Computed example of a mutant assay.
Amino acid sequence: MTDTAKQTPIVDNRRSPLLVFSGQSNRPLAQSICDNLGIPLGKSSTEKFTNDNLIVRYEESLREGDIFIVQTFSTPVSDSIMELLMMIDAAKSASAGRVTAVIPYYSYARSDKKDSPRISIAGRLVADLLQEAGADRVLTMTLHAPQVHGFFKVPVDHLSADSVLAQHFRSCVDDASQGVVLAPDAGSIKRAAGIAHRLDAGLAMVDKQRISDTEVSPRAMIGDVEGKTVFIVDDEISTAGSLIETVDIARKMGARDVYVGVTHGVYTGPAIERIAALGVTQVASTNTVLVSEEKIAQADGKLAVLDVAPHFANAIRNIHTGESVSTLFN
Results as ranks from 00 to 15, higher is better:
residue 11 V to F: 14
residue 12 D to H: 06
residue 14 R to F: 04
residue 15 R to V: 07
residue 16 S to A: 15
residue 17 P to W: 09
residue 19 L to M: 15
residue 20 V to P: 12
residue 21 F to C: 04
residue 21 F to A: 07
residue 21 F to T: 03
residue 23 G to C: 13
residue 24 Q to P: 00
residue 24 Q to K: 15
residue 24 Q to D: 06
residue 26 N to D: 04
residue 27 R to H: 09
residue 28 P to D: 02
residue 30 A to K: 01
residue 30 A to M: 13
residue 32 S to F: 07
residue 36 N to I: 03
residue 39 I to D: 09
residue 43 K to P: 13
residue 43 K to I: 07
residue 44 S to Y: 00
residue 48 K to Y: 05
residue 49 F to H: 14
residue 52 D to T: 04
residue 53 N to P: 04
residue 55 I to G: 03
residue 62 L to E: 08
residue 66 D to Y: 02
residue 67 I to K: 12
residue 69 I to G: 11
residue 71 Q to T: 02
residue 72 T to H: 12
residue 78 S to N: 15
residue 79 D to C: 05
residue 80 S to N: 11
residue 80 S to V: 03
residue 82 M to K: 11
residue 82 M to N: 13
residue 82 M to A: 13
residue 83 E to A: 08
residue 86 M to A: 06
residue 86 M to E: 11
residue 86 M to S: 02
residue 88 I to T: 05
residue 89 D to G: 02
residue 90 A to F: 12
residue 92 K to A: 01
residue 95 S to Y: 09
residue 98 R to F: 02
residue 99 V to R: 11
residue 99 V to W: 02
residue 99 V to F: 07
residue 100 T to N: 08
residue 101 A to W: 13
residue 102 V to P: 13
residue 106 Y to W: 11
residue 108 Y to Q: 15
residue 108 Y to H: 14
residue 113 K to Q: 05
residue 113 K to Y: 01
residue 117 P to E: 07
residue 118 R to I: 08
residue 119 I to K: 14
residue 120 S to V: 14
residue 122 A to R: 09
residue 123 G to C: 07
residue 123 G to E: 00
residue 124 R to Q: 14
residue 125 L to P: 00
residue 126 V to N: 08
residue 126 V to F: 05
residue 127 A to K: 14
residue 127 A to Q: 13
residue 127 A to T: 10
residue 128 D to L: 04
residue 129 L to V: 04
residue 130 L to P: 03
residue 135 A to M: 10
residue 135 A to P: 10
residue 137 R to A: 10
residue 137 R to S: 15
residue 137 R to G: 05
residue 140 T to F: 08
residue 144 H to E: 12
residue 145 A to D: 07
residue 145 A to P: 05
residue 147 Q to A: 05
residue 148 V to I: 06
residue 150 G to F: 00
